[in-house]
Computed example of a mutant assay.
Amino acid sequence: MESVHQGSVFAQKKVVWLCAAFCCLLWGSAYPAIKSGYEIFQIATDDIASKIVFAGYRFLFAGLLLLLFALAQRKPCARMRPRQFGQLALLGLTQTSLQYFFFYVGLAFTTGVKGSIMNATGTFFSVLLAHFIYQNDRLSYNKTLGCILGFTGVMVVNMGSGLMDFSFSLAGDGSVVLAAFILSAASLYGKRISQTVDPTVMTGWQLGLGGLALVAGGYLSGGKLALHGGASVAILAYLTLLSSVAFALWSILLKYNRVGMIAPFNFLIPVSGAVLSSIFLGENILEWKYALALVLVCSGIWWVNKRAG
């Protein structure tokens, strides 16, 4: 009976791992999709306000889509206490508005390949923050080694032609790293809220409110967004679906599993982001530093999830 139980537990873990990997594959595809969106919508590199409007509509539509889905399932989308609504508003302003402000700005000043690898720092932040917040999610030897390997990968991708030639753009790489930290901290806050609010409803509200704040802020700053044929509709629709599916599924995974078990899968984002950026944007992924960085971050995933002794 014990072996049957162990087999059932392992099967459940495999489903969780597959779902987490699927979320990260979707998020990785966002890098080439966003940069392609800049070209399709004809948004200039220095037009930050229009980039914010673009991001805002993506999350506003994603939030509305999730809330409609929750209503179809007869979930209580509006029956919540003022304190709960305040928590959702704070989550939306941090996890969506603030985080994606820095993410979209950073991606405008770095490549899709490099940005996807830099964003993997969010995994370290999640594992480290969970160590101080949750009693059952402490750092172990394997987690520490995995984080060191992953962080080393991030350092490698910023090297130039020589080992002492370090290239780090504050506007580009720095903004992406800051966005990763904000997402990690906000995700832990979202895990707490998901214990009292349905994850789909929570994600719908936080994306919708955060997206609305981005749209308003972008337009007030002089931004604009005009459709340019079917391609612009298609790319915005894809980003909308990507956000709604990935964030809702990720919130469910975080509600029922330890952060330390789920967060390390974020290391898959740079892998999928780098490969897809290479395919769709024609960016060079064959440089030794990119290959070495991807090997290191993938090794980090393995070590963090490896059972102790």
Rank of each mutant, 00 (worst) to 15 (best):
D173E: 13
G86W: 13
I193V: 14
Q95F: 11
P82M: 14
S161D: 14
L254R: 07
L249T: 15
S36F: 09
S244Y: 08
V197P: 05
K289A: 11
I279P: 04
D198G: 03
A216G: 00
R74F: 06
L212P: 03
L241M: 15
V154W: 04
D137Y: 04
L254E: 06
Y290S: 11
S36K: 12
F166S: 03
N266K: 09
D46K: 15
Q84H: 13
L249E: 07
I148K: 01
D137T: 03
F59Q: 01
F280P: 09
T110N: 06
V245C: 10
S221F: 08
P32W: 06
F102R: 06
S169F: 08
V4L: 15
F151N: 01
L71F: 06
A89R: 00
S194M: 11
I301R: 10
A308G: 12
F151P: 00
C147H: 01
S244H: 07
L139K: 06
R192Q: 15
F22E: 00
G309P: 11
F69D: 00
G208I: 07
F59V: 04
H131W: 07
R192D: 15
G230A: 12
P32L: 08
T94G: 02
A44M: 13
R81Q: 10
A120Q: 06
Y256L: 02
N284E: 12
G150I: 07
Q84C: 00
A179G: 08
P264D: 03
Y290W: 03
V197E: 09
R81I: 04
W205K: 01
G218F: 03
A274P: 03
R74S: 14
R81M: 10
L281P: 06
T240R: 04
A216N: 05
I193G: 04
Q6I: 09
A130D: 06
V105R: 01
L225W: 06
L183W: 12
S167G: 00
G309L: 12
V259R: 01
V154F: 10
K35C: 08
T240I: 05
F61A: 14
M159Q: 14
K14H: 07
G146T: 06
Y219Q: 09
Q135D: 14
R307T: 10
S232F: 07
A108N: 05
G204T: 07
K51Q: 12
S126Q: 08
Y57R: 01
A20N: 08
S169H: 12
F125M: 11
G210L: 03
M159S: 12
G223R: 05
V197Q: 07
Q99M: 14
S194H: 03
C147R: 03
L67Q: 10
L107K: 08
L227W: 15
I301L: 15
H228A: 11
A62V: 07
F109T: 08
K224W: 11
A248Q: 03
Q6C: 05
Y31T: 01
A291S: 13
S277N: 07
